[in-house]
Design a protein around this nucleic acid. Structure first.
Lengths: 207, 207
DNA sequence: ACATAATGATCCTGATTAGAAAATTGTCAA
DNA sequence: TTGACAATTTTCTAATCAGGATCATTATGT
C-alpha cells in the first residue's frame, strides 16, 4: 500500500551530502578527520558509524544530527506525489512595484516549497531603490538579460552578468539594481517558501 | 570561572531520559529492544552506541535524534543570517551522466534549502533517456537555451521553449529530453533540498 | 603515460553487542 | 536485626563489528 520509499541508509545520506558539496572522498576525509577507506566503506553500507564518529562528522562538517539520520519528516510534508505546472511569463501573475515587475510563475500550484519568479528590474542605484528588502528564507537569482548589481547588508556590492547567479539568505537586507550601461534587466528568482505564507509576505513587502 | 557547559555524554543523556520517564533498565530494554546490560554500560560511559542502535532507540522510544546528541537546540534554526554566494557556470561543480551535464552552482554554501543547477541536456527521446528519474522534493526547471520535452509518469509529454519553465514534484518519475530540431538544450534547475538525499539519487540513478 | 578518484581486499586493534552470571539494592516477615 | 526473596543493576565472556592502515585495481580526465 503506502509508497514506502527505500529506507535511506547512512551510506546514502553521506554520499548525498558529499556529492551535494562536490567533495571527493579525500576532501571529505580531510574535513572530517575520518580516513578515506572508512568513508568509502560507509558509503557502500559495509560499515556504519558509532556515536563519537557521528558527532565528529556533525561538528567538523557543520551538519545537523537530524540530517545524518534521514528521518522522514512525517508531518509538515503534504506529500502529494504527482503535481506539475508549466509556467510562462505570459500567463504569470504580475505584480508591479517601484523597483520591480514580478511575474509569479506556476501560481496554480499551491503549497510549493519554492516560488519561481521572473522579475524585471528597473532601479539603477541603491539610492533609487531605497530601503533594502528582507524577508524569511533564502533565494537564488539568475540573470537572464542585462546586468545587475546586488547590494546587501553585509557585503560590498557585486555585479552579475547574464548567465550568472547568486544565492543568499533573504533575511539579510538585499536589493537588485540594473548595472551601469543597461536600461533594464531580467532575472529569474527562486525563493524558498519553507516557512509558509510568503507569497503574501513577498507581495505585501514589496507591494 | 569559565562557562563550563558540562559536556554531556551519551550516558548522561540516556540516564536522564530514563529517569525522567521513571523507567527501569529492564523496562527501557523492553521498549527499545536493547539488552539491559548494554544500556547499563552506556549509562556508565563504558560504551556508546552505533548508528543502527541509535536509530532503533530514537524510533522505539520516540526520541528525536537531536535529543540523543545533546547539541544545543537553538530551536532547530541554525539561522545564519548573512550568507551569500555568487555562482557561475565556469566555477560550478560539474557532474556528467549519460543524459545530463550538471553544473552545481554555489556549492561553497552549505545547508541550502534549494540547490541551483545548470544542466545541459543531451538525450533526444524518452527511449534514449531510459528509466524515469524520481527523488524526494520538488524542482523547478527553466529553459535557457533550446527547447525541451518533459516526460512524466502521470502526464502526457509537454514541450518547453526557451524562456518557459515547469514546476513538478520530483517524486513523480520525470525525464527531460531535447526537442526535435535541436541539438542540445540548456536549463536552469532548482531542487528543493529540504529532505536531502537527492543529489546522490540523481547521480547514481543516471550514473 | 600520468595523476586523481573511487573502490576492493587484507589485516589488525579495539570497541560494540548480547546473553548469562554475579553483585547490589530494596522489601517484608519472623 | 536478621534472613529470605525478588527486582534491579553491574560484571564477565565471547562473538561480532567499527575504524584505520596499506596495497592493488579500475576508471576518468589531462
Amino acid at each position: 500500500m503506502a509508497a514506502r520509499v527505500a529506507p535511506p541508509t547512512l551510506g546514502t545520506v553521506m554520499k548525498s551530502i558529499r556529492s551535494r558539496n562536490g567533495w571527493t572522498l579525500k576532501e571529505m576525509s580531510a574535513k572530517s578527520g575520518i580516513p578515506v577507506s572508512t568513508l568509502s566503506k560507509v558509503e557502500h553500507d559495509r560499515l556504519t558509524l558509532s556515536y563519537d564518529k557521528l558527532q565528529q562528522l556533525s561538528q567538523r562538517l557543520s551538519i545537523r544530527m537530524a540530517d545524518l539520520f534521514a528521518e522522514e519528516e512525517s508531518d509538515s510534508a503534504p506529500r502529494v506525489t504527482g503535481r506539475r505546472s508549466v509556467g510562462t511569463i505570459e500567463q504569470a501573475v504580475r505584480v508591479t512595484t517601484d523597483n520591480y515587475d514580478y511575474h509569479y510563475l506556476c501560481t496554480d500550484l499551491r503549497q510549493k516549497r519554492m516560488i519561481p519568479i521572473i522579475t524585471r528590474i528597473r532601479a539603477h542605484s541603491a539610492r533609487e531603490f531605497g530601503e533594502l528588502v528582507r524577508h524569511q528564507g533564502e533565494e537564488f537569482i539568475y540573470v537572464l538579460e542585462g546586468e545587475i548589481e546586488i547590494h546587501t547588508e553585509f557585503y560590498d556590492p557585486v555585479a552579475l552578468k547574464t548567465g550568472q547567479g547568486i544565492y543568499l539568505d533573504s533575511s539579510m537586507g538585499h536589493a537588485y539594481v540594473v548595472a551601469e550601461g543597461f536600461d533594464e534587466a531580467l532575472v529569474l528568482g527562486v525563493c524558498s517558501s519553507a516557512d509558509e505564507g510568503l507569497m503574501d509576505s513577498l507581495m505585501s513587502l514589496h507591494g
